[in-house]
Amino acid sequence: MAIIKIKRPQLTLADKLYLPAVIKGLWITLGHAIRSMRGKTHGAAQFNSSGLGVTMQYPETKWDDQLPDYYRGVPALVTDEQERERCVSCQLCEFICPPKAITIIPDEIESDDPWAKVEKRPKEFEIDMTRCIYCGMCEEVCPEQAIYLRQDYAMTGLSRAEMVNDKERLYEIGGVRTGLVNKWNELK
């Protein structure tokens, strides 16, 4: 390969004087200021800006429509198209959860239930959101595709007790999720 000799740039008098560079800088910042006051900042629309600069002013403007599918929000239990609760209370998630946020009390499914062969379901399923670190381990470890990190991220509460999601709330957040593997269905 040929050797290319690059000349070091020589500072011109204008560079050495600082002042032209300062004035150029002032011009650039003025441009930004004017654009941002006219609500025409570059990228404002892309960031769902509130009109001033590119900043999204959170509670008033949100970015929920831009959340990706794999967004790791609040972990929650899901039901499938058959309205069946999918968790079999194997407690794998409870044991893998790094901060020990999950507490499960297992229960037996009565023998007269159409899904009796599944045998177990959770009696209590609690996720303590003051402990959860949104790592997604529970979703990864679940053999039943029963627990997913959903798109909610604004978990608030006035007491510690309020920050614990019980089973009912978890199903409410999780909702119905379609397209899962239904391994307990009868083979045709």
Partner: peptide
């Protein structure tokens, strides 16, 4: 002013 210059609020 700093925030206006830096496209913030």
């Amino acid at each position: 002013v700093s925030s206006i210059i830096q496209d913030r609020v």
